[in-house]
Every structure is written in C-alpha cells, then in structure tokens.
C-alpha cells in the first residue's frame, strides 16, 4: 500500500477527516472518530507501531491531541490530530487499541489535564500523585514556587 492509496482510503472511509502532507500523512479528525480511526489505521493500514501521543495547548482554541503511528514495513506514517475544543479536556483513549498509549496518555493527563475515557489506569506518571495543576498548560508558569523546595 502506498501513501496515495492510504490517503484515498482514509478519504473514503472517514469523510470528515482532513488529510495533508505526504510523510507523515497528517490526518485531522473530529473527536468522535478518534478510536475508530485508530483501529482502522492499525488493522487496515497496518500501522502497528505506536510512536508517541502528546497534546498541544492552543490557548483560546483549546487542546489538541496528537498521535503518531507508523507502518514499519511500508514506511507509512500517520500523524493523527484532533482538536478537543475550547474548554474541553476529555478525549477517548487509545489504550485499548495500542498498548503504548497507556503511558503516553498518562503523561498527557499529568501535563495537560486531559481525561482519557476508557483508559485502564489514569493517574499521574511523572509528577507526584498529589501535585496540583497541570504544568504544560500555557496558564501554568514555568517557575511556579513550591515551598520549601523552590
């Protein structure tokens, strides 16, 4: 399967998706197609390698979740993006589809406060369990004091 074939297939199956670029194929999706597209990518397109999952804080426009998966045999890389909308911080979880999403989504929750529905074990991973605030949001200052340590 080539990239062009993959792009046409995506366009057929997921009409509302927006496909740009060649490598990686950047697919911008609405949130409700998130998990079904991930399953499609894994089963049909053969993208079984889960590279990473992260989020971006676009201030007034809200949060965006970005996932990259790859087909190691045919070198098709998909960058899946979805905008959660202003003020919304919940997103369906890809952990049932890709096991690598488990820790990556825990990190997104830790850093951005995005609650992933369907995640088996959503708790903070990098910061302590009783930490207040989600640091990578643009509203969080980088040098927030934390007495007595800083």
């Amino acid at each position: 399967m080539t990239r062009e074939q993959a792009a046409t297939l995506i366009g057929e199956r997921f009409g509302m998706a927006q496909v740009d670029g060649t490598s990686p194929l950047v697919v911008t999706l609405p949130v409700d197609q998130w998990v079904s597209f991930a399953r499609f990518a894994k089963d049909t397109l053969g993208c079984r390698f889960f590279a990473f999952s992260t989020a971006v804080d676009w201030k007034e426009q809200g949060l965006e979740v970005v996932v990259r998966v790859e087909n190691l045999d045919t070198q098709i890389a998909l960058l899946m993006k979805t905008r959660l909308g202003a003020g919304i911080s919940s997103c369906p979880s890809l952990a049932p589809v890709y096991r690598g999403a488990n820790w990556m989504e825990r990190e997104c929750y830790d850093m951005f406060g995005i609650r992933f529905d369907g995640h088996p074990d959503l708790r903070r991973i990098l910061l302590a369990d009783d930490w207040e605030g989600h640091p990578l949001l643009k509203s969080y200052a980088v040098d927030t004091p934390h007495p007595p340590y800083r």
Partner: peptide, 18 residues
Amino acid sequence: SGGPFRHGYHVVKGVDRV
C-alpha cells in the same frame, strides 16, 4: 543550585535545601 533546570517547576533549587 538547581543548575540549568533551576526555573523548572519540579526542580529543587539545590540539594542543600534538603
């Protein structure tokens, strides 16, 4: 003193605070 990461939110500004 916290080093290059001194301004990070999770870094102790020097171990002599501990």
